[in-house]
């Protein structure tokens, strides 16, 4: 059913810290590795070793330069499905392939019902859905639904692959519908934001903006380097001898 549940028991999602993300792409490759064998498998590629490489990815990291108040900073920005509370990608689906789970709020695609009309990807303002031209169906982030409940994995591994892979701890997973959950408290503490709130999709995922810049100078000044073209002294003599 593409009609949305009135409420979900949980609102599972991600909290992404733009302050600590270093743009290493580990979450991107880890996502691809897990999911090309997971719930939405395969994540096909076309011409993977050629000049027109293309393929399906659920997670993409952009890099921006944010200039504000006369100072600029580089911000790495991972972009994936936000598992919205009002996902128009689900309601536009003509076949019932797209659905939002009432139990945990995860937005999924039933690949066996998808006709590949691509309308859901048009309805998503965030570019979260990518069409698999080889299989002929739409694919999207599953929030690693096949990891987070997977009893074959150790308990600490039952998080999305992107979260498990992040070396800087910039990605957090949890129930954003529960105000007392660690992720909700993190969002409150760091004033996390929803993306494009003006469109009314009510995304679940939150982004933590970079922390304010400090005006503090480095505490230890670096010693000046040796002069490279000295006129006298030992180095000057070495320079003259070697220059002959």
């Amino acid at each position: 059913m593409t009609s949305l549940p009135a409420a979900t028991e949980k609102s599972l999602g991600l909290v992404i810290d733009l302050d600590t993300c270093v743009g290493c792409q580990a979450c991107v490759t880890s996502c691809k590795e897990w999911n090309t064998g997971g719930h939405m498998a395969p994540l096909t590629d076309t011409d993977p070793y050629g000049g027109t490489v293309d393929g399906v990815w659920f997670n993409r990291v952009h890099t921006y330069e944010h200039t504000c108040g006369g100072a600029g900073r580089t911000v790495h920005f991972p972009r994936s499905c936000l598992h919205c509370a009002e996902p128009a990608c689900v309601t536009v689906c003509p076949t019932g392939a797209s659905y939002k789970r009432a139990s945990d709020g995860i937005v999924l695609v039933d690949e066996d019902k998808c006709i590949g009309c691509k309308l859901c990807s048009w309805a998503c303002p965030y570019g979260a859905r990518e069409f698999d031209a080889i299989v002929g169906v739409m694919k999207k982030c599953t929030l690693c639904v096949d990891r987070i409940y997977n009893e074959n994995l150790r308990e600490e591994d039952r998080v999305p692959a992107c979260v498990a892979a992040c070396p800087t701890g910039a990605r957090h997973f949890g129930d954003l519908g529960d105000p007392t959950s660690p992720v909700s408290r993190l969002v409150e503490e760091r004033e996390g934001v929803a993306l494009m709130p003006e469109l009314g999709y009510r995304p679940t995922n939150r982004y933590l903006p970079p922390r304010a810049r400090t005006e503090r100078a480095p505490s230890i000044a670096a010693a000046p380097l040796e002069d490279v073209a000295p006129d006298g002294g030992f180095l000057g003599w070495v320079d003259r001898v070697l220059s002959r």
């Binding site: 027109t52 293309d54 990815w57 921006y64 944010h66 504000c68 911000v75 990518e130 069409f131 993306l195």
Partner: peptide, 21 residues
């Protein structure tokens, strides 16, 4: 779209080198 309030936000690197879907 990026949650970066105020100032200007300029794309300096795409996640991929070729055109994607």
């Amino acid at each position: 779209a990026t949650g970066l309030a105020g100032g200007t936000v300029r794309s300096i690197e795409w996640p991929h080198t070729e055109e994607n879907y």
